[in-house]
């Protein structure tokens, strides 16, 4: 595949720093300094963000890769698996929306003067409707965590607005699949836990063949 050298290195280069449980704890410790005044914590926090800063274009390309993955999954894998009934209908609706996310992110990256990452080749270890929906649930929840993790790193508020508009849809997809399969609508409870780049790659990386 001619894109073999592009997808994974692109992902590897992207730093989408999120707020994992561990980082919450670190920040909790930092918060103790907050009572001493802004000066006590400000530099630490600034450094924490700056240390993992990445460009908006990098983040948008990271998101584009995930949207490519979802689009391929719901469009092509859904066909080879042979979904039926409500699952087929839902997958078709989601496929169309993920494709729109791909288009929006591609044009946003171009408008920002960046180069959209090329379409990778994906491999999905699903063989039937049940395993398809199981992975769909994981993918949508991963998408929610990825956008929520990357959101605070975006410098351009217009991109944050766009990312917010997209992540709300990912969350709605996740809930729809949860209801269809009897899984938890809110797997993290009251707050959707943001994911780091590493966590996202752990979930999505194995699905990127080249």
């Amino acid at each position: 595949m001619r894109h073999s050298d592009q997808a994974s290195p692109e992902l590897a280069a992207v730093e989408v720093h999120g707020h994992t449980r561990a980082s919450f704890m670190v920040r909790g410790a930092l918060a103790a300094g907050a009572v001493m005044g802004a000066g006590a914590v400000g530099p630490l926090l600034t450094r924490a963000f700056a240390a993992t800063a990445s460009s908006d274009i990098d983040i948008l390309n990271f998101a584009l890769t995930l949207e490519y993955l979802e689009t391929d999954f719901y469009t092509n894998k859904a066909k080879t698996v042979g979904l039926t009934g409500a699952a087929k209908q839902l997958a078709a609706m989601i496929a169309g929306q993920e494709a729109q996310h791909v288009a929006a992110l591609t044009s946003a990256i171009k408008a920002a003067g960046g180069t959209p990452v090329k379409l990778p080749t994906f491999v999905f270890p699903v063989t039937n409707q049940k395993s398809f929906l199981k992975l769909a649930y994981v993918l949508e929840n991963t998408g929610v965590g990825a956008y929520n993790g990357a959101g605070p790193s975006l410098k351009n508020p217009a991109y944050l607005a766009a990312a917010g508009s997209i992540v709300q849809i990912e969350a709605r997809h996740a809930a729809s699949i949860a209801l269809l399969t009897g899984q938890k609508v809110t797997p993290d409870g009251g707050f959707d836990i943001p994911l780091t780049k590493a966590k996202v790659l752990a979930a999505a990386g194995p699905l990127i063949k080249s």
């Binding site: 929610v144 956008y147 929520n148 959101g151 605070p152 917010g164 992540v167 709300q168 849809i169 990912e170 969350a171 709605r172 997809h173 996740a174 809930a175 729809s176 949860a178 209801l179 609508v185 809110t186 009251g190 707050f191 959707d192 836990i193 943001p194």
Partner: peptide, 12 residues
């Protein structure tokens, strides 16, 4: 953002 997507899940 962490709350936003919960509202979205409820809404859906």
């Amino acid at each position: 953002l962490a709350i936003h997507t919960i509202e979205a899940r409820h809404a859906a």
